Amino acid sequence: MATGGRRGAAAAPLLVAVAALLLGAAGHLYPGEVCPGMDIRNNLTRLHELENCSVIEGHLQILLMFKTRPEDFRDLSFPKLIMITDYLLLFRVYGLESLKDLFPNLTVIRGSRLFFNYALVIFEMVHLKELGLYNLMNITRGSVRIEKNNELCYLATIDWSRILDSVEDNYIVLNKDDNEECGDICPGTAKGKTNCPATVINGQFVERCWTHSHCQKVCPTICKSHGCTAEGLCCHSECLGNCSQPDDPTKCVACRNFYLDGRCVETCPPPYYHFQDWRCVNFSFCQDLHHKCKNSRRQGCHQYVIHNNKCIPECPSGYTMNSSNLLCTPCLGPCPKVCHLLEGEKTIDSVTSAQELRGCTVINGSLIINIRGGNNLAAELEANLGLIEEISGYLKIRRSYALVSLSFFRKLRLIRGETLEIGNYSFYALDNQNLRQLWDWSKHNLTITQGKLFFHYNPKLCLSEIHKMEEVSGTKGRQERNDIALKTNGDQASCENELLKFSYIRTSFDKI
């Protein structure tokens, strides 16, 4: 039985969820670079991206490699990797027998973001014989899940209580170790020597080791999670996991709180800001991140802002960003909400898709409305799209047979046209069989910064309504002859009103 693990408890099935942008060198404390989270699957090609990484700022997932063999891993080693800020997950990587050479110096898994409450997941690794993470000293947050690894031993010899604050939620089941077939031998045991430290858990006094050649490092209890030197002297209180010299914040392997210019500090002093819960960055760093993602459509890219001495992905609820200094300031009234469309555009074809934009005031991208039916549609669209004030790209209304009016965009005031449909149009209306009105132009103002209007096959939309939009939106004169079809717009509506004058002759039985 794995020490510190839980057996036999019912657990939810383990679901495996399925960018080499360097964020800056980590400095003297770390020998390499800070790398983003990685999802490495199918083959070993991307694994080489770990070569210079000291910190993975995010998670590391290595999974679904069915053609790899043990010899493929023999020359692979990433000794610079010290810390993973989120979680480490391995799933069905064939041929991998140990992690001792792959990650010989991995010391800390912070667990800032977890995989279903777990910071370390080893699942269905069919050839893994031992973990071998002999320098792993601290899992700051989260638990361990090690399950269905039929060859995995050296679990009962690990004292997880020396690595985690609590072992109650560890789930370590259905491994070879369960069948008591392992016969784990710690260093020196074969020669009758006791080389590794022994600890007591559940009444068992057991030597602690990761492999037959690597003991588990056990520091004096007084050192807590700070770690200790090879001689057993406690590291500085700002260290986490390990250090090369005692009581020196510049000799830590990793930091308990924050890293700044080669030393570990309790908090980031001005003019620095907390970033990702582990390091200090200056304003320029946060500003660069903001600008890199301002026009990016890459998933996970955030326009970072500053709030409460932190550089964070977005302002919290009730705050909006001051564009001059990136500071989050309290909103006066309802907060603006910028919604970034991942692929640059979004099609609204149902109430469900409209709900995804609920509360958005600025759309960074283009909207395509293609709704053919739905219950209580006008009210639903207004509830979900009615706060949109600005669209950076274009607005396209296409084959939306259920629409009679666009009044559900009740606050839309600006279409920038930074991206144009077919390279020309910022407003595009095609084949809307029941569209009769755009907006009530006596109450609604709309500016279209650039781009043209396109109207074709809107049989109940009168040309007068379209011409009014040209005047109000500032697009009059931009359109070419064929942009607004004269014969297919309003051709099934009563669009022309003329005053009919009647004269009559009164007659009676005795007068003409």
Rank of each mutant, 00 (worst) to 15 (best):
R110F: 04
N105I: 02
F285Q: 05
D178I: 12
N242T: 09
F78M: 08
D72G: 06
E49T: 14
Y273F: 15
L102W: 09
K176P: 09
S161R: 10
T45F: 05
T45V: 12
N195I: 08
H302M: 05
S77A: 03
N149F: 03
G95W: 05
C311R: 00
H127V: 05
D248S: 05
L260Q: 01
R279C: 02
T329V: 08
S244F: 13
A119K: 01
M321Y: 13
C234P: 05
K224N: 04
G111S: 02
C301D: 03
M65F: 10
S77E: 10
R141Q: 15
N170K: 12
H59T: 04
I122Q: 01
D248T: 02
P249S: 06
R256H: 04
G111P: 00
P269L: 01
E97L: 05
F275H: 08
K294V: 03
M321P: 15
L63T: 07
D39R: 14
F91P: 00
D248E: 05
T320P: 02
P313T: 05
V253G: 07
G183H: 06
Y259V: 06
V121K: 00
E180K: 09
I163L: 07
A198V: 06
W210T: 06
N282I: 12
L174A: 12
C219L: 03
D277A: 15
L60S: 00
P104C: 01
H214D: 05
N202V: 04
G58W: 01
L233G: 12
P270M: 08
C243L: 01
R162D: 08
C293L: 03
D261G: 02
K80T: 08
S112Y: 09
T68M: 10
N138Y: 14
P36F: 13
V173W: 01
W160P: 01
H59N: 07
C219R: 04
K191Q: 05
S98V: 02
M137G: 11
F115L: 10
R256K: 10
C235Q: 00
Y319A: 09
N170Y: 04
V200Q: 11
F103Q: 00
P70D: 14
D247K: 08
P271M: 03
F275R: 01
G142L: 02
V55P: 00
G241L: 02
F103W: 05
G300M: 05
L102C: 02
Y272P: 02
G333A: 03
I163S: 01
C239F: 00
E57W: 03
Y94G: 03
C234M: 03
D277P: 02
E147P: 01
R92W: 10
M321R: 11
N322L: 13
H290S: 08
N170P: 06
L152W: 00
D169G: 12
D101S: 15
P79I: 03
D39E: 15
I201R: 05
G95I: 03
P187T: 11
N179A: 09
C315K: 00
L29T: 12
R46C: 14
E57C: 03
Y319H: 07
M65C: 02
N242Q: 14
H212R: 08
E151Y: 15
V265F: 01
C53P: 00
C209M: 02
S213G: 11
G300R: 11
N138D: 13
L155S: 12
F283H: 10
H48N: 15
S324M: 11
P270L: 05
Q303V: 07
P271Q: 03
C243S: 00
I201M: 10
C280R: 00
I109C: 00
T189A: 13
F66R: 02
L64K: 09
N105G: 10
T107I: 15
I146T: 01
I82W: 10
H48S: 08
P334T: 11
N195K: 11
Q287V: 03
L44A: 13
D261Y: 04
P316D: 05
I306H: 02
K129R: 08
C255Q: 01
H236K: 01
D159G: 13
L60A: 01
F275M: 04
C301I: 00
L260W: 02
I40R: 00
N179D: 06
